[in-house]
């Protein structure tokens, strides 16, 4: 087993995860990621030919509900939790 996977692969993954790492951090956490990915390889031993993937413990059928308006009183309380607010708009840095 390789000690740690290609550091470039980890950098691409970190970019997708929107987390910044110092090279030292990426080496430290990358070691466990590598160890786990190698461990996942073990699943190759299981013969899964003809088995359907289980996506949820139970999927009976697609669940639908009536398309009706139901009142919610949560909006104001939810907005109040925003770090920066102007009227009912959440402020973020320059978009353009």
């Amino acid at each position: 087993m390789k000690h740690i996977m290609d550091i470039r692969e980890l950098e691409i993954t970190a970019e997708l995860a929107q987390i910044a790492f110092t090279p030292a951090e990426l080496e430290r956490l990358g070691r466990e990621v590598t160890q786990m990915v190698s461990y996942f390889e073990k699943m190759k031993e299981v013969d899964t030919d003809g088995l359907e993937p289980t996506t949820h413990a139970f999927v009976k059928a697609n669940r639908v509900r009536p398309d009706t308006v139901t009142p919610s009183t949560l909006a104001d309380a939810a907005l109040e939790r925003a770090p920066e607010l102007e009227d009912r708009f959440i402020v973020i840095p320059n978009v353009l």
Partner: peptide, 14 residues
């Protein structure tokens, strides 16, 4: 290789 395989192993465990 990983996610779909894991879901099939999940079926085998069930």
């Amino acid at each position: 290789q990983y996610y779909t395989k894991a879901q099939k192993v999940r079926t085998a465990i069930r």
